[in-house]
C-alpha cells in the first residue's frame, strides 16, 4: 500500500531533462534536482544523447549546459521549443555569446558555477 502510494508519487514528480557533459556537474545537478523533488531524464552528455532521450520522453522542463564538447546545445534548445518544454541554461558562457543564438535569447542563464538552490527554484518556476 505504502509502496504503491510512493510509486504513484514518483510518477507525478516533474520530469527534468539535464544536459551537461562534465560528469561531476551532471551528477551534482541530478542530485540537486532529485532532492528538490524532480525526476531526472538523463543526464545527457551530448546533443545526440539529449535528442535521443527527447524521442523517448517529453520532460516538463530542462536544464542545459551550452558547450557540449565541440558542439553547442542549440539543436536541443530548438527541439525543446518545438515541444513547448521550458528550459534554463547553466553555462559559463557570456551573455554576449549566448545572445548570438535566437533560440536562447529570452532564456535565463543561471551561470556556472551554478547556485543549486537558485537552480531548483528556477526549475520549479518553469514547471509551475
Amino acid at each position: 500500500m505504502a509502496m504503491s502510494a510512493l510509486m504513484g508519487d514518483t510518477e507525478h514528480r516533474g520530469c527534468v531533462l539535464v544536459v551537461e557533459d562534465e560528469v561531476f556537474l551532471a551528477m551534482e545537478l541530478e542530485a540537486a534536482l532529485t532532492d528538490g523533488g524532480f525526476r531526472v531524464l538523463g543526464p545527457a552528455a551530448s546533443v545526440r544523447d539529449a535528442l535521443d532521450l527527447l524521442t523517448s520522453e517529453c520532460p516538463d522542463a530542462a536544464v542545459l549546459d551550452f558547450n557540449l564538447g565541440r558542439d553547442k546545445v542549440t539543436p536541443v534548445a530548438l527541439q525543446l521549443k518545438t515541444l513547448g518544454v521550458p528550459f534554463v541554461l547553466a553555462s559559463a558562457s557570456s551573455a554576449a555569446e549566448l545572445s548570438r543564438y535566437a533560440v536562447l535569447a529570452d532564456i535565463t542563464n543561471l551561470g556556472k558555477p551554478t547556485d543549486l538552490k537558485r537552480l531548483v527554484a528556477a526549475v520549479r518556476a518553469l514547471h509551475a
Partner: peptide
C-alpha cells in the same frame, strides 16, 4: 580571452562540484 574566462569558470565549477560531492 573570452574562451579562457569561460574555461576558468568551468574549471572552478568542476572543482567546486568535486569538493561539494
Amino acid at each position: 580571452l573570452s574562451e579562457t574566462r569561460h574555461r576558468m569558470n568551468n574549471l572552478f565549477a568542476v572543482v567546486r562540484s568535486i569538493a561539494m560531492q
